[in-house]
């Protein structure tokens, strides 16, 4: 099934600059419906009222981390099917394992490039080239 580039994408990061970078990269990939949240709890509120096709989230945020957000999403019957990509500087294998166990769809280590983001998105939501 073709990927709908008009889907809503939620990006979550406490660094405004990083939100801006991801937003720009998504725009270049053809995804223009992008919303932003600065931590897990804000993201969760938005997810519960919105209709999102993809979540791209940082890990290290306060008060709710990306991992806690992931667990909340996977525990919510209405949200659990949404693909979730973790984009983080946390690169220890224990982090990757914890994220995988919590149900992450894919994992990108910062710093990253547009090609990596695109590749991971294709893996998660399907080919949109």
């Amino acid at each position: 099934m073709a990927v709908d580039k008009n889907m809503n994408v939620l990006i979550v990061d406490d660094y405004k600059t990083m939100l801006r970078i991801i937003r720009n990269l998504l725009k270049q990939l053809g995804f223009n419906n992008v919303d932003e949240a600065t931590d897990g709890s804000m993201a969760l509120q938005m997810l519960r009222v919105g209709n999102y096709g993809l979540i791209i989230s940082d890990w290290n945020m306060e008060p709710m981390t990306g991992l806690q957000l992931l667990r909340e999403v996977r525990a919510d019957p209405k949200l659990k099917a949404i693909p979730f990509i973790m984009v983080t500087a946390e690169s220890k294998s224990e982090n990757v394992i914890a994220a995988k166990e919590a149900g992450v769809s894919n994992y990108i280590v910062k710093p990253f490039n547009a090609e990596t983001l695109k590749t991971k998105m294709v893996t998660v939501i399907g080919d949109f080239a």
Partner: peptide, 9 residues
């Protein structure tokens, strides 16, 4: 844009 990710790190 990619290069600007340095700021986050």
């Amino acid at each position: 844009f990619e290069a600007c990710t340095f700021q986050d790190i």
